[in-house]
Design a binder for these strands. Sequence first.
DNA 1: TATGAGATCCGCT
DNA 2: GCGGATCTCATAA
Length: 203
Amino acid sequence: MSDSPDLSALLAAPVQEVAARLLGAVLSHGDVAVRITEVEAYGGADDPASHAARGRTTRNASMFGAPGSLYCYRIYGMHTCANVVTGALGDPAAVLVRAGEVVAGRSRARERRAGVSDHELARGPGNLCRALGIGLELDGTSLLDGPCHLEAASRGLVHATSARVGVRLAPTLTWRFFLPGEPSVSRYRAAATPRVDGRPGDT
DNA sequence: TATGAGATCCGCT
DNA sequence: GCGGATCTCATAA
């Protein structure tokens, strides 16, 4: 079902533009759908923080796939992150979906995320995947015609940018895009273990 | 409210 | 063997 031709055209744009345009888009899986409020752009070889910077590996193979694919990976052993693959073949890029507002299947999302308020159901990459029920088994599937569906926003929304969260490499790139004022947007946190000086451990 | 550290698995070197 | 695009709880101010 290609009822969103705009999405295919959009995914061919530079990854930063794709990231900005994905704000307000609706990502759905099963009964649950979220309106994306926060994303981060990751490029290819020119972006040292990208998983694709070191070339194709087993884990990031989906990032080299067709635009519109889903790239899922496990982080810190327990959380799953979902990315929208963009860029042409051979030019790997992806947009990390960091947060969203649950707009459908809220009761189902609450079951998966017991004890949190509505705007926290999909706040943060790991939580968003949990609320949507996205797992590694969806890695590489199509967002155009697959278990997960992405519907582009009708128009661009006013957004703000900042450095990416938790990324140590390339801290000057302001490739995080979010909708100001949205309660579901995660609060910015700098990368851990800054290693400000050259001193070894002083425990 | 802000900061620090632990939990826990897979892929990469 | 080590680090990571995180989340949550606990403690300090």
